[in-house]
Design a protein around this nucleic acid. Sequence first.
DNA 1: GAAAAATTTTAGGCAAATCTAAAAATGTTT
DNA 2: AAACATTTTTAGATTTGCCTAAAATTTTTC
Lengths: 219, 219
Amino acid sequence: MEISLTEENYLKAIFFISGMEGNLVNTNAIAERLDTKAATVTDMLRKLKQKELIHYQPYKGSRLSEEGQVLAIRILRKHRLWETFLVDKLGFGWEEVHEIAEQLEHVRSQKLTERLSQYLGNPQFDPHGDPIPDERGIFPMRENLTLDKASAGEQVLVKGVKDSSPDFLSYVAKLGIRLGDEMKVIHIEPFDSSVLVSHQGEEFRLSAMACSNIYISRL
Amino acid sequence: MEISLTEENYLKAIFFISGMEGNLVNTNAIAERLDTKAATVTDMLRKLKQKELIHYQPYKGSRLSEEGQVLAIRILRKHRLWETFLVDKLGFGWEEVHEIAEQLEHVRSQKLTERLSQYLGNPQFDPHGDPIPDERGIFPMRENLTLDKASAGEQVLVKGVKDSSPDFLSYVAKLGIRLGDEMKVIHIEPFDSSVLVSHQGEEFRLSAMACSNIYISRL
DNA sequence: GAAAAATTTTAGGCAAATCTAAAAATGTTT
DNA sequence: AAACATTTTTAGATTTGCCTAAAATTTTTC
Ligand SMILES: [Mn+2]
Ligand SMILES: [Mn+2]
Ligand SMILES: [Mn+2]
Ligand SMILES: [Mn+2]
Protein backbone atom coordinates (compact mmCIF):
# COMPACT_ATOMS: atom_id res chain seq x y z
CA MET A 1 0.00 0.00 0.00
CA GLU A 2 1.30 3.41 -0.99
CA ILE A 3 1.63 5.97 1.75
CA SER A 4 2.21 9.63 0.93
CA LEU A 5 4.60 12.03 2.59
CA THR A 6 1.63 13.90 4.00
CA GLU A 7 0.15 10.74 5.44
CA GLU A 8 3.50 9.96 7.03
CA ASN A 9 3.49 13.32 8.74
CA TYR A 10 0.01 12.71 10.10
CA LEU A 11 1.02 9.33 11.49
CA LYS A 12 4.04 10.86 13.16
CA ALA A 13 1.96 13.68 14.61
CA ILE A 14 -0.60 11.26 16.02
CA PHE A 15 2.18 9.15 17.51
CA PHE A 16 3.69 12.17 19.25
CA ILE A 17 0.43 13.37 20.72
CA SER A 18 -0.80 9.91 21.59
CA GLY A 19 2.40 8.67 23.22
CA MET A 20 3.40 5.04 23.65
CA GLU A 21 0.17 4.34 25.53
CA GLY A 22 -1.91 4.97 22.43
CA ASN A 23 -4.24 7.54 23.97
CA LEU A 24 -7.09 8.95 21.94
CA VAL A 25 -6.05 12.08 20.08
CA ASN A 26 -8.19 15.16 19.45
CA THR A 27 -8.62 16.42 15.92
CA ASN A 28 -7.66 19.92 16.99
CA ALA A 29 -4.42 18.75 18.54
CA ILE A 30 -3.35 17.25 15.24
CA ALA A 31 -4.36 20.38 13.39
CA GLU A 32 -2.28 22.48 15.72
CA ARG A 33 0.77 20.27 15.54
CA LEU A 34 0.71 20.18 11.76
CA ASP A 35 -0.23 23.83 11.47
CA THR A 36 -3.34 23.11 9.46
CA LYS A 37 -7.12 23.32 9.88
CA ALA A 38 -9.37 20.89 11.71
CA ALA A 39 -11.42 20.33 8.57
CA THR A 40 -8.30 19.23 6.72
CA VAL A 41 -7.43 16.85 9.52
CA THR A 42 -10.89 15.30 9.47
CA ASP A 43 -10.48 14.55 5.76
CA MET A 44 -7.18 12.85 6.39
CA LEU A 45 -8.45 10.90 9.40
CA ARG A 46 -11.15 9.39 7.23
CA LYS A 47 -8.56 8.40 4.68
CA LEU A 48 -6.16 6.94 7.24
CA LYS A 49 -8.98 4.96 8.80
CA GLN A 50 -9.92 3.63 5.39
CA LYS A 51 -6.30 2.50 4.99
CA GLU A 52 -6.51 0.90 8.45
CA LEU A 53 -3.58 2.95 9.73
CA ILE A 54 -5.65 4.49 12.52
CA HIS A 55 -8.73 3.78 14.58
CA TYR A 56 -11.10 6.70 14.30
CA GLN A 57 -14.63 7.41 15.39
CA PRO A 58 -16.18 10.75 14.42
CA TYR A 59 -16.34 13.16 17.35
CA LYS A 60 -14.58 10.59 19.58
CA GLY A 61 -10.96 10.87 18.50
CA SER A 62 -8.30 8.78 16.80
CA ARG A 63 -5.32 6.60 17.61
CA LEU A 64 -2.81 4.62 15.59
CA SER A 65 -3.50 1.04 14.59
CA GLU A 66 -0.78 -1.55 15.09
CA GLU A 67 0.33 -1.00 11.49
CA GLY A 68 0.13 2.77 11.77
CA GLN A 69 2.34 2.73 14.83
CA VAL A 70 4.94 0.57 13.11
CA LEU A 71 5.09 3.09 10.27
CA ALA A 72 5.21 6.09 12.60
CA ILE A 73 8.08 4.61 14.58
CA ARG A 74 9.96 3.84 11.39
CA ILE A 75 9.75 7.45 10.31
CA LEU A 76 10.84 8.59 13.76
CA ARG A 77 13.80 6.23 13.56
CA LYS A 78 14.84 7.75 10.26
CA HIS A 79 14.37 11.29 11.58
CA ARG A 80 16.61 10.72 14.56
CA LEU A 81 19.25 8.80 12.63
CA TRP A 82 19.52 11.63 10.12
CA GLU A 83 19.76 14.18 12.91
CA THR A 84 22.61 12.17 14.35
CA PHE A 85 24.30 12.05 10.96
CA LEU A 86 24.00 15.79 10.48
CA VAL A 87 25.52 16.57 13.88
CA ASP A 88 28.10 13.79 14.19
CA LYS A 89 29.32 13.60 10.62
CA LEU A 90 28.56 16.94 9.01
CA GLY A 91 29.15 19.12 12.04
CA PHE A 92 25.76 20.83 12.22
CA GLY A 93 24.61 22.40 15.46
CA TRP A 94 21.85 20.55 17.26
CA GLU A 95 19.51 23.47 16.76
CA GLU A 96 19.80 23.29 12.95
CA VAL A 97 19.06 19.68 12.22
CA HIS A 98 15.38 19.16 12.92
CA GLU A 99 14.14 20.99 9.86
CA ILE A 100 16.46 19.13 7.51
CA ALA A 101 15.59 15.80 9.14
CA GLU A 102 11.92 16.56 8.51
CA GLN A 103 12.77 16.19 4.84
CA LEU A 104 15.25 13.32 5.08
CA GLU A 105 12.91 11.19 7.20
CA HIS A 106 10.70 10.63 4.17
CA VAL A 107 13.36 9.07 1.97
CA ARG A 108 12.26 5.52 1.28
CA SER A 109 14.85 2.80 1.45
CA GLN A 110 15.00 0.26 4.21
CA LYS A 111 18.55 -0.54 3.20
CA LEU A 112 19.57 3.11 3.43
CA THR A 113 18.17 3.38 6.94
CA GLU A 114 20.03 0.34 8.17
CA ARG A 115 23.28 1.27 6.45
CA LEU A 116 23.05 4.74 7.91
CA SER A 117 22.44 3.36 11.40
CA GLN A 118 25.43 1.06 11.05
CA TYR A 119 27.61 3.89 9.73
CA LEU A 120 26.72 5.95 12.79
CA GLY A 121 27.50 3.05 15.12
CA ASN A 122 23.86 2.15 15.77
CA PRO A 123 23.29 5.11 18.07
CA GLN A 124 20.67 4.78 20.79
CA PHE A 125 20.02 8.48 21.26
CA ASP A 126 19.87 11.41 18.86
CA PRO A 127 21.67 14.76 19.29
CA HIS A 128 18.91 15.98 21.62
CA GLY A 129 19.10 12.85 23.75
CA ASP A 130 15.87 11.45 22.34
CA PRO A 131 15.73 7.66 22.03
CA ILE A 132 16.16 6.12 18.57
CA PRO A 133 13.97 3.05 18.08
CA ASP A 134 15.85 0.06 16.71
CA GLU A 135 15.09 -1.87 13.53
CA ARG A 136 12.30 -3.73 15.32
CA GLY A 137 10.79 -0.50 16.64
CA ILE A 138 11.94 -0.93 20.22
CA PHE A 139 12.99 2.23 22.07
CA PRO A 140 16.01 2.26 24.41
CA MET A 141 15.10 3.26 27.97
CA ARG A 142 15.79 6.72 29.27
CA GLU A 143 15.35 7.95 32.81
CA ASN A 144 12.66 10.57 32.97
CA LEU A 145 14.51 12.77 35.43
CA THR A 146 14.97 16.50 34.86
CA LEU A 147 17.45 18.87 36.47
CA ASP A 148 14.76 20.68 38.50
CA LYS A 149 14.24 17.44 40.45
CA ALA A 150 17.86 17.27 41.63
CA SER A 151 18.94 18.39 45.08
CA ALA A 152 21.81 20.63 46.15
CA GLY A 153 25.12 18.81 46.24
CA GLU A 154 24.17 16.20 43.66
CA GLN A 155 26.44 15.27 40.79
CA VAL A 156 24.53 14.64 37.56
CA LEU A 157 25.05 13.69 33.93
CA VAL A 158 23.32 15.61 31.13
CA LYS A 159 21.23 13.14 29.16
CA GLY A 160 19.09 15.24 26.87
CA VAL A 161 16.68 18.10 26.43
CA LYS A 162 12.92 18.05 26.66
CA ASP A 163 12.33 21.23 24.69
CA SER A 164 14.00 20.98 21.30
CA SER A 165 13.12 24.45 20.07
CA PRO A 166 16.01 26.21 18.33
CA ASP A 167 15.86 28.94 20.98
CA PHE A 168 16.40 26.59 23.87
CA LEU A 169 18.95 24.49 22.02
CA SER A 170 20.99 27.55 21.08
CA TYR A 171 20.83 28.79 24.66
CA VAL A 172 22.07 25.52 26.10
CA ALA A 173 24.78 25.24 23.46
CA LYS A 174 25.91 28.79 24.24
CA LEU A 175 26.37 27.81 27.88
CA GLY A 176 28.70 25.07 26.69
CA ILE A 177 26.53 22.27 27.99
CA ARG A 178 26.67 19.11 25.91
CA LEU A 179 25.13 15.68 26.19
CA GLY A 180 27.20 13.48 28.48
CA ASP A 181 28.66 16.40 30.42
CA GLU A 182 28.89 16.24 34.19
CA MET A 183 27.37 18.98 36.33
CA LYS A 184 27.10 19.60 40.03
CA VAL A 185 24.14 21.27 41.67
CA ILE A 186 25.68 23.86 43.99
CA HIS A 187 22.58 25.55 45.30
CA ILE A 188 18.88 25.86 44.65
CA GLU A 189 17.49 29.36 45.23
CA PRO A 190 14.34 29.09 47.37
CA PHE A 191 12.95 32.32 45.93
CA ASP A 192 12.57 31.29 42.27
CA SER A 193 13.88 27.73 42.25
CA SER A 194 16.72 28.77 39.99
CA VAL A 195 19.71 26.46 40.19
CA LEU A 196 23.36 27.31 40.58
CA VAL A 197 25.42 24.64 38.85
CA SER A 198 29.08 24.04 38.29
CA HIS A 199 30.07 22.74 34.90
CA GLN A 200 33.61 22.26 33.64
CA GLY A 201 35.05 24.57 36.28
CA GLU A 202 32.55 27.36 35.69
CA GLU A 203 29.56 28.25 37.82
CA PHE A 204 26.36 29.68 36.42
CA ARG A 205 22.67 29.92 37.17
CA LEU A 206 19.85 28.17 35.33
CA SER A 207 16.21 29.18 35.61
CA ALA A 208 13.67 26.68 36.91
CA MET A 209 12.19 26.70 33.44
CA ALA A 210 15.50 25.77 31.85
CA CYS A 211 16.13 23.06 34.45
CA SER A 212 12.79 21.41 33.85
CA ASN A 213 13.84 20.97 30.22
CA ILE A 214 17.16 19.25 30.85
CA TYR A 215 17.15 15.49 31.28
CA ILE A 216 19.74 14.12 33.68
CA SER A 217 20.78 10.98 35.45
CA ARG A 218 22.27 10.91 38.93
CA LEU A 219 25.90 9.93 39.27
CA MET B 1 9.50 31.60 -5.53
CA GLU B 2 8.44 28.14 -4.46
CA ILE B 3 9.40 25.28 -6.72
CA SER B 4 7.85 21.86 -6.29
CA LEU B 5 9.55 18.48 -6.41
CA THR B 6 7.73 17.77 -9.66
CA GLU B 7 8.89 21.02 -11.19
CA GLU B 8 12.45 20.17 -10.15
CA ASN B 9 12.22 16.88 -11.98
CA TYR B 10 11.00 18.61 -15.12
CA LEU B 11 13.88 21.07 -15.02
CA LYS B 12 16.35 18.26 -14.60
CA ALA B 13 14.78 16.32 -17.47
CA ILE B 14 14.92 19.32 -19.79
CA PHE B 15 18.54 19.90 -18.83
CA PHE B 16 19.47 16.32 -19.65
CA ILE B 17 17.77 16.31 -23.02
CA SER B 18 18.85 19.81 -23.92
CA GLY B 19 22.49 19.44 -22.95
CA MET B 20 24.85 22.26 -22.09
CA GLU B 21 24.18 23.90 -25.46
CA GLY B 22 20.59 24.61 -24.51
CA ASN B 23 19.01 22.97 -27.55
CA LEU B 24 15.26 23.13 -28.03
CA VAL B 25 13.54 20.15 -26.45
CA ASN B 26 10.52 18.29 -27.79
CA THR B 27 7.51 17.83 -25.57
CA ASN B 28 7.44 14.12 -26.31
CA ALA B 29 11.05 13.68 -25.26
CA ILE B 30 10.24 15.10 -21.84
CA ALA B 31 7.17 12.92 -21.58
CA GLU B 32 9.21 9.84 -22.36
CA ARG B 33 11.99 10.66 -19.94
CA LEU B 34 9.58 11.33 -17.09
CA ASP B 35 7.34 8.44 -18.03
CA THR B 36 4.26 10.61 -18.37
CA LYS B 37 1.96 11.88 -21.12
CA ALA B 38 2.59 14.69 -23.56
CA ALA B 39 -0.55 16.49 -22.40
CA THR B 40 0.76 16.49 -18.84
CA VAL B 41 4.06 17.89 -20.04
CA THR B 42 2.34 20.68 -21.93
CA ASP B 43 0.54 21.70 -18.73
CA MET B 44 3.82 21.86 -16.89
CA LEU B 45 5.63 23.70 -19.66
CA ARG B 46 3.06 26.43 -19.49
CA LYS B 47 3.54 26.68 -15.76
CA LEU B 48 7.34 26.70 -15.97
CA LYS B 49 7.23 29.37 -18.63
CA GLN B 50 4.97 31.43 -16.44
CA LYS B 51 7.55 31.10 -13.66
CA GLU B 52 10.24 32.12 -16.17
CA LEU B 53 12.18 28.92 -15.61
CA ILE B 54 12.00 27.95 -19.28
CA HIS B 55 11.52 29.51 -22.68
CA TYR B 56 8.63 27.85 -24.41
CA GLN B 57 6.69 28.44 -27.59
CA PRO B 58 3.73 26.17 -28.34
CA TYR B 59 4.54 23.63 -31.06
CA LYS B 60 8.13 24.92 -31.23
CA GLY B 61 9.76 23.40 -28.17
CA SER B 62 11.26 24.51 -24.87
CA ARG B 63 14.62 25.17 -23.24
CA LEU B 64 15.78 26.26 -19.82
CA SER B 65 16.09 29.93 -18.96
CA GLU B 66 19.22 31.12 -17.22
CA GLU B 67 17.47 30.72 -13.87
CA GLY B 68 16.03 27.33 -14.79
CA GLN B 69 19.47 26.05 -15.70
CA VAL B 70 20.95 27.23 -12.43
CA LEU B 71 18.27 25.31 -10.56
CA ALA B 72 18.64 22.20 -12.71
CA ILE B 73 22.39 22.12 -12.18
CA ARG B 74 21.92 22.55 -8.45
CA ILE B 75 19.68 19.50 -8.32
CA LEU B 76 22.14 17.53 -10.42
CA ARG B 77 24.91 18.53 -8.03
CA LYS B 78 22.92 17.23 -5.10
CA HIS B 79 22.05 14.03 -6.93
CA ARG B 80 25.66 13.22 -7.69
CA LEU B 81 26.94 14.19 -4.26
CA TRP B 82 24.41 11.90 -2.62
CA GLU B 83 25.34 9.06 -4.96
CA THR B 84 28.94 9.57 -3.96
CA PHE B 85 27.97 9.50 -0.29
CA LEU B 86 26.00 6.30 -0.68
CA VAL B 87 28.85 4.49 -2.43
CA ASP B 88 31.87 5.94 -0.61
CA LYS B 89 30.49 6.15 2.90
CA LEU B 90 27.64 3.67 3.14
CA GLY B 91 29.09 1.00 0.88
CA PHE B 92 26.28 0.78 -1.65
CA GLY B 93 26.95 -0.68 -5.08
CA TRP B 94 26.97 1.83 -7.91
CA GLU B 95 23.94 0.17 -9.46
CA GLU B 96 21.81 0.79 -6.35
CA VAL B 97 22.28 4.46 -5.72
CA HIS B 98 20.47 6.28 -8.51
CA GLU B 99 17.00 5.56 -7.23
CA ILE B 100 17.79 6.69 -3.70
CA ALA B 101 19.55 9.81 -4.99
CA GLU B 102 16.39 10.66 -6.95
CA GLN B 103 14.80 11.19 -3.56
CA LEU B 104 17.72 12.79 -1.76
CA GLU B 105 18.35 15.33 -4.52
CA HIS B 106 15.17 17.16 -3.53
CA VAL B 107 16.16 17.86 0.06
CA ARG B 108 16.40 21.61 0.41
CA SER B 109 19.31 23.03 2.34
CA GLN B 110 22.14 24.87 0.71
CA LYS B 111 24.18 24.33 3.84
CA LEU B 112 23.57 20.60 3.77
CA THR B 113 24.76 20.37 0.17
CA GLU B 114 27.97 22.22 0.89
CA ARG B 115 28.69 20.34 4.11
CA LEU B 116 28.11 17.07 2.33
CA SER B 117 30.42 18.05 -0.49
CA GLN B 118 33.10 19.00 2.00
CA TYR B 119 32.62 15.77 3.96
CA LEU B 120 33.15 13.81 0.75
CA GLY B 121 36.29 15.78 -0.09
CA ASN B 122 34.62 17.94 -2.74
CA PRO B 123 34.53 15.15 -5.30
CA GLN B 124 34.63 16.09 -8.97
CA PHE B 125 33.04 12.91 -10.29
CA ASP B 126 30.28 10.66 -9.02
CA PRO B 127 30.44 6.85 -8.70
CA HIS B 128 29.59 6.47 -12.40
CA GLY B 129 32.28 8.92 -13.43
CA ASP B 130 29.80 11.69 -14.18
CA PRO B 131 30.99 15.22 -13.47
CA ILE B 132 29.71 16.96 -10.33
CA PRO B 133 29.14 20.69 -10.87
CA ASP B 134 30.71 22.86 -8.20
CA GLU B 135 28.95 25.38 -5.97
CA ARG B 136 28.95 27.90 -8.84
CA GLY B 137 27.50 25.37 -11.26
CA ILE B 138 30.70 24.76 -13.20
CA PHE B 139 31.33 21.22 -14.41
CA PRO B 140 34.81 19.66 -14.30
CA MET B 141 36.05 18.59 -17.73
CA ARG B 142 35.98 14.98 -18.79
CA GLU B 143 37.45 13.50 -21.95
CA ASN B 144 34.71 12.17 -24.15
CA LEU B 145 36.64 9.07 -25.19
CA THR B 146 35.10 5.60 -25.02
CA LEU B 147 36.83 2.24 -25.05
CA ASP B 148 35.61 1.35 -28.55
CA LYS B 149 37.79 4.20 -29.88
CA ALA B 150 41.00 2.72 -28.46
CA SER B 151 43.47 0.78 -30.58
CA ALA B 152 45.17 -2.56 -29.93
CA GLY B 153 48.14 -2.22 -27.62
CA GLU B 154 46.91 0.90 -25.89
CA GLN B 155 46.99 1.25 -22.13
CA VAL B 156 43.91 3.07 -20.77
CA LEU B 157 42.36 4.27 -17.54
CA VAL B 158 38.67 3.65 -16.79
CA LYS B 159 37.02 7.01 -16.24
CA GLY B 160 33.30 6.29 -16.16
CA VAL B 161 30.29 4.72 -17.79
CA LYS B 162 27.96 6.24 -20.33
CA ASP B 163 25.05 3.88 -19.69
CA SER B 164 24.12 3.95 -16.02
CA SER B 165 21.39 1.31 -16.16
CA PRO B 166 21.51 -1.17 -13.28
CA ASP B 167 22.00 -3.97 -15.80
CA PHE B 168 25.13 -2.49 -17.30
CA LEU B 169 26.48 -1.31 -13.97
CA SER B 170 26.04 -4.75 -12.43
CA TYR B 171 27.71 -6.35 -15.43
CA VAL B 172 30.73 -4.09 -15.26
CA ALA B 173 30.98 -4.52 -11.49
CA LYS B 174 30.81 -8.30 -11.90
CA LEU B 175 33.82 -8.14 -14.24
CA GLY B 176 35.68 -6.40 -11.42
CA ILE B 177 36.18 -3.20 -13.39
CA ARG B 178 36.21 -0.07 -11.24
CA LEU B 179 36.73 3.60 -11.90
CA GLY B 180 40.42 4.43 -11.99
CA ASP B 181 41.46 0.91 -12.99
CA GLU B 182 44.06 0.39 -15.69
CA MET B 183 43.31 -1.80 -18.70
CA LYS B 184 45.24 -2.80 -21.78
CA VAL B 185 43.63 -3.38 -25.15
CA ILE B 186 45.11 -6.68 -26.34
CA HIS B 187 43.19 -7.19 -29.54
CA ILE B 188 40.19 -5.90 -31.45
CA GLU B 189 38.25 -8.59 -33.27
CA PRO B 190 37.61 -7.42 -36.84
CA PHE B 191 34.48 -9.57 -37.12
CA ASP B 192 32.32 -7.92 -34.43
CA SER B 193 34.61 -5.22 -33.03
CA SER B 194 34.64 -6.96 -29.68
CA VAL B 195 37.68 -6.10 -27.60
CA LEU B 196 40.02 -8.39 -25.73
CA VAL B 197 41.36 -6.53 -22.71
CA SER B 198 43.68 -7.37 -19.87
CA HIS B 199 42.69 -6.08 -16.48
CA GLN B 200 44.46 -6.84 -13.22
CA GLY B 201 46.19 -9.90 -14.64
CA GLU B 202 43.05 -11.35 -16.20
CA GLU B 203 42.04 -11.29 -19.84
CA PHE B 204 38.45 -11.10 -21.03
CA ARG B 205 36.38 -9.98 -23.95
CA LEU B 206 34.02 -6.98 -24.06
CA SER B 207 31.38 -6.49 -26.74
CA ALA B 208 31.50 -3.40 -28.95
CA MET B 209 28.32 -2.32 -27.26
CA ALA B 210 29.89 -2.55 -23.80
CA CYS B 211 33.03 -0.75 -24.97
CA SER B 212 31.09 2.17 -26.38
CA ASN B 213 29.66 2.70 -22.88
CA ILE B 214 32.95 2.83 -21.01
CA TYR B 215 34.70 6.18 -20.78
CA ILE B 216 38.49 6.02 -20.75
CA SER B 217 41.54 8.18 -20.98
CA ARG B 218 44.75 7.13 -22.69
CA LEU B 219 47.79 6.52 -20.51
C1' DG C 1 1.14 20.90 -52.99
C1' DA C 2 -2.35 17.88 -51.21
C1' DA C 3 -2.87 13.88 -48.28
C1' DA C 4 -1.23 11.22 -44.59
C1' DA C 5 1.38 10.81 -40.43
C1' DA C 6 3.33 12.51 -36.42
C1' DT C 7 3.49 15.79 -32.82
C1' DT C 8 1.53 18.91 -29.76
C1' DT C 9 -2.09 21.34 -27.60
C1' DT C 10 -6.82 21.84 -25.84
C1' DA C 11 -10.89 20.18 -23.47
C1' DG C 12 -12.76 17.97 -19.83
C1' DG C 13 -12.14 15.09 -15.74
C1' DC C 14 -10.12 12.93 -11.54
C1' DA C 15 -7.54 12.41 -7.03
C1' DA C 16 -4.88 14.49 -3.25
C1' DA C 17 -4.41 18.04 -0.06
C1' DT C 18 -5.76 22.17 1.32
C1' DC C 19 -9.02 26.14 2.64
C1' DT C 20 -13.47 28.89 4.56
C1' DA C 21 -18.01 28.93 6.16
C1' DA C 22 -21.89 26.54 7.89
C1' DA C 23 -23.96 22.73 10.33
C1' DA C 24 -23.87 19.17 13.75
C1' DA C 25 -22.37 17.06 17.92
C1' DT C 26 -20.52 17.36 22.41
C1' DG C 27 -19.37 19.74 26.79
C1' DT C 28 -20.15 23.29 30.27
C1' DT C 29 -22.69 26.58 32.81
C1' DT C 30 -26.31 28.46 35.02
C1' DA D 1 -32.53 20.89 31.25
C1' DA D 2 -31.97 24.79 28.45
C1' DA D 3 -28.53 28.06 26.84
C1' DC D 4 -24.10 28.88 25.55
C1' DA D 5 -19.47 27.56 24.16
C1' DT D 6 -16.34 24.47 22.12
C1' DT D 7 -15.08 20.92 19.11
C1' DT D 8 -15.68 18.45 15.08
C1' DT D 9 -17.65 17.40 10.78
C1' DT D 10 -19.80 18.56 6.34
C1' DA D 11 -20.32 21.39 2.18
C1' DG D 12 -18.36 23.59 -1.38
C1' DA D 13 -14.00 25.52 -3.59
C1' DT D 14 -9.21 25.78 -5.05
C1' DT D 15 -4.58 24.14 -6.60
C1' DT D 16 -1.43 20.74 -8.30
C1' DG D 17 -0.41 17.01 -11.08
C1' DC D 18 -2.05 13.69 -13.75
C1' DC D 19 -5.13 11.22 -17.32
C1' DT D 20 -7.91 10.25 -22.09
C1' DA D 21 -9.88 11.78 -26.21
C1' DA D 22 -10.37 15.20 -29.62
C1' DA D 23 -8.66 19.14 -32.15
C1' DA D 24 -4.96 21.81 -34.03
C1' DT D 25 -0.50 22.24 -35.92
C1' DT D 26 3.64 20.75 -38.08
C1' DT D 27 6.23 17.42 -40.74
C1' DT D 28 6.64 13.87 -44.10
C1' DT D 29 5.23 11.41 -48.07
C1' DC D 30 3.48 10.79 -52.45
MN1 LIG E 1 13.81 16.48 15.33
MN1 LIG F 1 8.22 15.18 8.02
MN1 LIG G 1 21.99 8.97 -10.91
MN1 LIG H 1 14.17 13.46 -8.71
